[in-house]
Design a protein around this nucleic acid. Structure first.
Lengths: 153, 153
DNA sequence: TATTGTTATACTCTATAACTATA
DNA sequence: TATAGTTATAGAGTATAACAATA
């Protein structure tokens, strides 16, 4: 029989569980918003636009940690769905302006409710203190590693 | 100006940060194992096979939370790379047997080292107690939601 | 004939890089 | 002529479902 050399994976576990739980949460959420006709990435896109008057694709790309190309494609879909408008910036400014259309302003709160529902399903078993701690640790890592420091609130 | 109705997203935050951090960890790890010629999913696949003598594709699919089709495709790639063997089960048993080839037995510990390195990079700023707590909370959620209760160790 | 596995199809996500438009 | 954005290409991941093989 082949000897399985034991691998020290105390730390590897953390990455493993993080990925496992995150994927499950995202997949579940994807199913839940599917009925509203959007994907998870589209939800994040819309959610970000909800809090601002308008934003340039390049800026959104930075905030979402995606490339210009990816944002462009996402924007295409959302424009097709009549949820987002894409206009040239005013006067002497170069570039574009992405904005939510009225339909999306109504949609986002519904999606947010689904997000809450989904999160309750997964994190509801944790105590409020545990949830706070989990969020604190995740934000800590995000900040340390320079990940999007978007408030999102 | 458009009124941005405030959305209660205390809980939505948790899912958001979870996804953000998890994606960053996975992407970073993907880059790191790319040099060894494997993807993250392939790493998980190989890691699972490392601890067993052999396993049926169907069983692996269940453990990895993937469909048969996805496992089949993954297995194809790994067989092409000469890292995994795919043989009919012995005697009267139906189905197949996936096993690591010797090259993979040497590879997995190297990948595990990269995983440790990657995890240290992301979780190293947390104290040991915080890391334990993070893992405890993630495992708790995974168990509650019936996610793969694989020890992985 | 169930069960196991493969193949075909399709879509999202992501990245890179070449290309276009314009202030 | 930089900069902003689009388009083309490609590969990974995932899912569904039709199909094949076999104990």
């Amino acid at each position: 029989m082949t000897e399985a050399k034991p691998i020290s994976d105390i730390e590897a576990h953390l990455g493993y569980w993080l990925r496992t739980v995150s994927n499950a949460v995202s997949q579940s959420f994807a199913r839940s918003v599917e009925a509203e006709g959007v994907t998870v990435a589209e939800w994040v896109f819309l959610r970000m636009l909800y809090d601002v008057e308008g934003i340039a694709p390049s800026q959104l790309a930075e905030r979402m940690g995606m490339t210009k190309g990816a944002i462009s494609k996402l924007a295409d879909r959302l424009v097709d769905k009549e949820l987002v408008s894409r206009d040239a910036k005013a006067d002497g400014q170069r570039g574009q302006m992405l904005m939510l259309k009225p339909a999306a302003r109504q949609l986002v709160p519904r999606l947010a409710a689904l997000a809450d529902q989904n999160n309750t399903m997964f994190f509801g078993t944790l105590s409020p203190e545990e949830r706070d701690e989990l969020e604190r640790l995740l934000r800590l890592i995000a900040r340390e590693r320079g990940l999007s420091d978007i408030p999102t609130t």
